[in-house]
Amino acid sequence: MIESQARAEICRVGASLYMRGYVHASAGNISIRLDDGNILITPTDACLGNLVPHKLALVNSNGEQISGSLASKTVLLHRSIYLANTQASCVIHTHASHLVSLSIRGVWSEADILPPITPYYVMKVGHIPFINYRRPGDPEVASMVVECITKGIKIAKPIRGVMLDRLGPVVWHQSPSTASAVLEELEETAKLWLMSNCQAPPLSGVQIEDLRRTFGAIW
């Protein structure tokens, strides 16, 4: 994606997520990997609801700032995801309420924070591992996430995101629109799971296999 288009897309997605309650205050960040390898990322403590295109931070592949306001403190995490997953072009992190609530209450398992309770969760999201609590911006988080990405690739079950304990989801995909769709489906599934008092039965193995055969779902 070229830089001018990426700046507009980050602002568009940020405003959309903010207006619909997926982010609040100055929580969350968005980045896009540009065609030249540089990374455009939201500034530290920026509100995703009123981003300004020319104020977005531009950093190189080594994390060195080129222009714009000071980059988000999660820039190392974003860079690490792009290095570990060459297919990813956009990373989104939010403090989505139902997912943060789930991490406080207790996730389904560390390998999968939610059970496969809907077909679209299986098809559009897939496995989301749990990352134990570290303070915001802790560089160790990047290493932990890369380990999860590498493991998923090794077993031919690549992941599209992780859940940071008490901080919220980090998701990635090939574009801002597809990354946003993963985030939204993930948050809505967490909402359904909590509404069922964490009792909704998962899809059966036969049902999941049907989704694999029919839609190429990775589960």
Rank of each mutant, 00 (worst) to 15 (best):
G126S: 03
L211I: 07
V100W: 04
W219Y: 08
V13L: 12
I92N: 10
Q65W: 01
V145P: 00
P202A: 09
Q207G: 14
T74G: 13
L48R: 08
G14R: 14
A181I: 08
A156G: 02
I113T: 03
W108E: 02
V107L: 00
N38T: 15
I113E: 00
T86G: 06
R20L: 12
I117G: 07
A88M: 13
S143E: 11
T74V: 13
S109A: 06
Q87H: 14
G14Y: 13
Y121W: 11
G49P: 05
L70I: 09
R213A: 13
K151L: 10
K124W: 12
T118K: 02
L70M: 10
W193D: 04
A84K: 15
M123P: 00
L58A: 09
K191T: 15
L34T: 04
S16D: 05
L76F: 15
Q87F: 06
V182F: 04
L40M: 08
C47E: 08
M144I: 10
L83S: 13
G205E: 13
G168T: 03
Q199G: 10
E209P: 10
G216K: 09
R166P: 03
S175C: 09
E185H: 05
L48I: 03
C90P: 02
S16R: 15
H98E: 13
H93A: 05
L183H: 01
R105P: 00
T118Q: 01
G49N: 07
P176S: 07
D112C: 14
P129Y: 03
S26Q: 01
L211V: 02
Q87S: 13
L83M: 14
T42L: 00
Q5F: 11
L194M: 09
P136R: 10
G68R: 04
A190M: 03
P115G: 05
I128E: 01
L77F: 11
T42Q: 03
T44D: 08
H173D: 12
S204M: 08
S180V: 05
K191C: 14
M19Y: 12
